[in-house]
Computed example of a mutant assay.
Amino acid sequence: MGEQLTIGELANRTGVATSALRYWEDLGLLPAPARVSGQRRYPPSAVGLVGVVVMLRAVGFTLREIKAFIVARSPAGDEWRELYQRKLAELDQRIAQAQVARTAIAHVLACPHEDVFECSNFTGGVAAFLAGSSLEEAHEEIHSR
Rank of each mutant, 00 (worst) to 15 (best):
A106S: 10
A96K: 02
V54L: 13
S74Y: 00
V53K: 07
R86L: 06
R102Q: 09
R40H: 13
V47N: 01
Q99M: 05
F122S: 11
Q85I: 02
V50T: 06
D78E: 12
D78T: 15
E118A: 07
G51S: 07
D92I: 00
S134G: 05
F122E: 06
D78C: 12
L109E: 06
A20N: 11
R145Y: 06
F117A: 13
L30S: 03
R81C: 06
V16M: 09
L56N: 12
G48F: 09
R145V: 03
R41V: 11
D92T: 00
L10V: 05
A58V: 03
R102D: 04
P33H: 00
G125V: 08
Q39A: 13
V59W: 10
V59A: 09
Q93G: 09
A98K: 13
G8E: 08
D26I: 11
A128Y: 10
F129E: 06
G15I: 10
S19H: 12
D26S: 15
L135N: 03
P33Q: 05
G77V: 00
S120H: 11
L27E: 04
H107W: 10
R102C: 04
T123H: 10
G125M: 15
Q93S: 11
E82F: 01
V47D: 05
E140A: 12
R13Q: 15
A89V: 09
A128S: 15
E25S: 08
Q97L: 12
T6C: 15
A98M: 13
T18L: 04
A127E: 14
V53G: 09
V116Q: 02
I142W: 12
A98G: 07
V36Y: 03
V53S: 08
E3K: 02
R145Q: 12
T103F: 05
R40S: 12
R145C: 04
Q4P: 04
R22Y: 00
Q99P: 00
T6F: 05
A131G: 15
T62E: 02
T103I: 05
I95R: 07
Q4W: 14
G77S: 14
L5I: 10
P43F: 04
E118H: 07
R57P: 13
A106F: 07
Q4F: 15
E114K: 14
R13Y: 03
I95M: 05
Q93C: 05
Q93E: 12
T62F: 01
R64V: 01
S134D: 07
R145N: 12
R35P: 04
A98Q: 09
C119I: 00
P31L: 14
E114I: 03
V126Q: 14
S144K: 10
E136D: 06
Q85D: 05
F69N: 05
G8Q: 06
R41E: 06
A17Q: 14
P31E: 08
R102V: 04
A34R: 11
E79I: 05
C119D: 00
A101E: 08
A101W: 10
D92A: 00
P31M: 11
L130M: 12
V52E: 13
Y42S: 01
P43Y: 08
I95A: 00
L135R: 07
Q97Y: 02
R57V: 12
Q99F: 01
Y84P: 02
L130S: 13
F61E: 02
Q93F: 07
G132I: 09
M55D: 15
N121A: 11
S144N: 02
F117M: 14
V108I: 08
T103R: 11
R22E: 08
V47T: 07
